[in-house]
Design a protein around this nucleic acid. Structure first.
Lengths: 114, 114
DNA sequence: TGAATATATAAGCAAATAGTTATATACTAA
DNA sequence: TTAGTATATAACTATTTGCTTATATATTCA
């Protein structure tokens, strides 16, 4: 009973995070690409702290993982999270946002440090 | 391009609505059972207007449909909505909340007017 | 070391959210 | 018609949210 209650709570918390256009787009992008903070700043035209705060929330729930590469910290969807099976069908049904990555590449602001 | 943007917007709006524990539980229940407002009042122990306002939001996005039966208005998940395929896998992965209905039946406050 | 770049955290603020109480509307049944 | 029940709407409020600017921390490179 407590377990069920916990699961509904957890699911609601995850959906609340995904229920923001910026974070949802980030998650769709990070499902295919590791992205760093400055790329999201470029894509969404928000301040760097705004982007960091979104990523912090996603990280706190375990939805994304970070990996530092030199100056940059790359974020990607945590496919080992026990709730990935919950969010996968959601992300799969979203239209690809890869054109945003292409735009970065065309502007020369895509980070490829590896 | 506008279409894609619209879809991400719409998906985020749907997920935002589902990202509330009360509404998510309601949706899970209404996926199997038509429920009326007073049943939700009993289940959640919120005021009747609070319940009506949640249902209003779900109805405004087309996620639920209402059907009046006598004094009562029964709400259920709108499976004809074009976005039902989007929310179905979400609801399917949630633990059943039917025990809440059973509790109503045991207390004698379940409405069965048909 | 010191300057430049990338990211995180803190503090503040306007808008959105989810509840409340009060009241209006709609249906049922005497 | 009138009383009782079910639901919706309006107005209000406390809390949460998502941004901002200012500042701190971490890494790279000359």
């Amino acid at each position: 009973m407590l377990q069920i209650s916990f699961e509904i709570d957890k699911a609601a918390n995850i959906l609340k995070l995904l229920g923001d256009k910026t974070r949802l787009t980030m998650m769709k992008l990070m499902d295919n690409h590791a992205c760093c903070v400055c790329e999201f700043v470029e894509i969404f035209q928000f301040s760097q702290p705004a982007v960091s705060q979104h990523l912090r929330k996603l990280k706190d729930l375990g939805l994304v993982v970070e990996e530092r590469k030199g100056q940059w910290i790359f974020y990607s969807v945590n496919k080992n999270n026990e709730y990935y099976s919950f969010i996968q069908p959601i992300l799969d049904q979203l239209p690809s946002q890869d054109y945003k990555i292409k735009e970065l590449e065309e502007k020369g602001t895509r980070i490829n440090c590896c």
